[in-house]
Amino acid sequence: MSGQHAPPPETGLRTGPPIDPSVAALGCQSVTKTFGAITAVDDVSIGIDQGEWVSIVGPNGAGKTTLLNVLNGFYDPDTGGNIYLSGEDVTTEPSYKRARKGLGRTFQGLELFEDEDVLENIMTTRAVKQRPNLLSALLFYVGGGRRTEAENMRRVEEILDYLELWEYRHSTIGSLPLGIQRRVDLARSLALEPDVLLLDEAMSGLTFDEKYDMVRFLADLHEKEGLTLVMIEHDLEVVTDVSQRMIVLDQGAIIARGEPDSVVDDPEVQRIYTGVE
């Protein structure tokens, strides 16, 4: 009788992060984020290795976006939690500094500069990368302003080329289909030349073809450029296809983690997913 109540075989799905967060490319240790009575993120520790592709899944309201916001510095974690970037504790650093240290991100709600064209949207990121100086900006022709501008433009054109956005370069964001807008968001964060890129539902709302394109670009960036990717994604088929590891969040807490194939087969994960969909 008692044999039937033996613990399930050790799968590793509910163990801690395989990589020590404090030395990972991106990590967090014991991070909790509460909004009043809501615990959006509940004691989460993750460690993402250089060059990994990790997916974060979970039902709506699980705390996925909040976790990204804590990682990139929009929200401070509740006291006790720490955030690490390339082994450095960045818990108290504002988001713009984390961005400059190589942490890029895109948005679920596409926070593009709506009134400007594709080129300008991406040039803005280059502008930051360049750390413009007031004097050379004011003088433009005499100071290096004009040359810097031309250099930036060339780099941006490479990115446009890479992401096949060339034909849209002069189109205003508002006039473009969602699939292209999401690609511009990706292009814009790439212009910062990040080491780690956080993607918040970069494929939601896309058609099959658009999704396929997006996966193709991400796979290319991951393989050829060695970009570390952390992606929030609902489509489990995509997740299992592309990512090396996945993390399942439910009600703010990690309920499973590990190889995508074994994670999606986990009864606990399936319960949450079938309970929602």
């Binding site: 500094k97 990121t125 990368k129 750390r131 900006a137 964060s189």
Partner: peptide
């Protein structure tokens, strides 16, 4: 005009248009 055509102007405009993405792009608000 020069200001608006170069990086500083772009950073100003980015902040004005979208505070959130400006910070993600490394702009000190």
């Amino acid at each position: 005009m020069n200001l608006s055509r170069t990086g500083i102007g772009r950073m100003f405009r980015a902040l004005h248009e979208n505070d959130l993405s400006a910070q993600v792009l490394g702009i000190n608000r």
